[in-house]
Every structure is written in C-alpha cells, then in structure tokens.
Amino acid sequence: MATRDLIGKRGEAIVTARLMDFCGNPDPYFDVHPLGEKCPTFDYLVELVNSGDSVPYFLVQVKSTQQGFTLKKRRLIIQVTKDDVVRMVRCPFPTYLVGVDEPNDRAYIVSVHGNMRGAIATMPATYPLTPRNLYKLWVEVKAHWRKLEASVKRSEFLYED
C-alpha cells in the first residue's frame, strides 16, 4: 500500500474510532457512514445516535497528516482547497473539518461556516475529539436541526394521485 493511502486509511480508522467512542455510555454519540472516494468534498455523513425519531446528521471532511503542528500557535498542518471550503460553507447542514494527527492517533474538529472563503493550511488543535467535545458536538448539531421544520417541505412530486 502506498504511504499516502496508508495514512488516509489510518486517518479514517482514527476518525471512526474517535467519533464512535462510547464515552462510558451504552451507545456512542454518533454513527459514522463513509461516503466513498468519489464523493466530492465530504468523506463522512455522521448521524446522531439517540436523538429522537428524526435523525440529525452532519457532514465531515477528514484530513490526515504526519506533518504535526506549527511551532508558534500549535496548529495542525493540513491542506484543504478553497473550492472545498466554499462548498462546505454553502451547505445548509452542519459541516466540519476533522484533522487527524496520525502519528499520535488524535483527531481535532472545527466547524466550517460563516465567512470562511480561502484555502486552509492549518487548523486549531483546540477541540480534540474527547468525550466532552463529542457531547458538545452532539448538542450543537441537534440544536441546528431543531430549527429545521419538516412540515414546511414542499414538492412537485406528490405521492397522492
């Protein structure tokens, strides 16, 4: 296996293991669904577990690195293209970037939204995927979906004749 593939495969495994950490609970906070190599921008659709009948979810791009952190601000060194950033910002669902510090088996998360427009070269290591942050993430995504109203959906393609 090429080194790059190995880092990618390993990064995916680290993200799955961290996001699906049971954190001492009977179930994990999240269920992770890989979107496959052909899906542009996003690598995972992540569903919230035990969040009621309607299942909220968010989308994730994963970047694995062996380059470590910047010296001054200790930011994880990764590469995300400008196009991907714009696509993530425009998506109406919650979108996150997960950076994986591959040699240390650690993963960090940051939301991609608002006025972000340019390519990303580093990301903060402020939010590791720890049990505390996983819970906060679960609450944040659930709150976002609570604002969406299923009854306002309209369609031309009606089930009734």
Partner: peptide, 20 residues
C-alpha cells in the same frame, strides 16, 4: 443497533492497530 456500533468501532480500532 448497539451490536452494529460495536462492530464498526472494533473494525476501526483493528485498522488503527494494524496500520501502525
């Protein structure tokens, strides 16, 4: 469902170990 979660995570932990 719980068994599926465990199975998924077990695979991820195994891949983490083997790819070291």
């Amino acid at each position: 469902k719980r068994e599926v979660y465990i199975e998924k995570r077990v695979r991820a932990l195994t891949t983490m170990l083997l790819t070291r």
